[in-house]
Amino acid sequence: MTEILSALLLLGGIEDPNGNPPTTKAMAEAFEQLFDFHFNSIYDCQGELYRRKPCNLTKTLDAMKGALMKEYKRKENGKKY
């Protein structure tokens, strides 16, 4: 879950009601409510993630971006004006 949360934060594009990017803490709280679990400390979890994956930190992010772009293009091509 930490990888997904971190990737979504790094992707950007998610905004709070004021149009600002959400804080890490706010995103973690949303994930906790949505998936019914608890991060002990999101900042510690992210630190462990970065220590565990010293290289290719963006592999998950790149895969998610590729999948999102593919879906976006598929939907754009299917739209009728």
Rank of each mutant, 00 (worst) to 15 (best):
D16I: 00
G19R: 08
K53E: 13
K73L: 11
L11R: 10
T24Q: 15
P22D: 11
R52S: 15
D36E: 10
S41V: 01
T24C: 14
G66F: 07
T24R: 15
A28M: 05
N77F: 03
I42S: 01
K79I: 04
A30E: 04
E29L: 14
F37V: 07
D16C: 08
P21K: 14
E71R: 12
M27Y: 05
I4L: 14
P21Q: 13
S41W: 01
L68K: 02
G47K: 09
S41L: 00
P17R: 07
T24Y: 09
Y81T: 05
A63P: 00
L57K: 15
C45K: 08
T24E: 14
D62T: 12
A67K: 08
I14F: 11
R74G: 00
F31R: 04
K53Y: 11
C55L: 07
I4A: 13
N77S: 13
A28V: 04
G19T: 08
R51W: 02
T24A: 13
N56F: 10
T60V: 14
Y50I: 05
N40Q: 06
E15A: 14
L61C: 06
E48L: 06
A67Q: 12
G19D: 04
K73D: 10
P21I: 11
T24V: 15
I4H: 07
G12N: 05
I42K: 01
E29A: 10
N40L: 03
A30W: 02
D36Y: 04
M27K: 03
A30Y: 03
E71F: 01
D36F: 04
C55S: 14
Y81V: 03
T23G: 10
K65D: 09
L61M: 06
A63R: 14
G47P: 05
M69C: 07
G19V: 09
L11H: 12
K73W: 04
D16A: 08
A30R: 05
N20M: 12
F37Y: 09
L5W: 04
E76W: 01
L49F: 14
P22I: 11
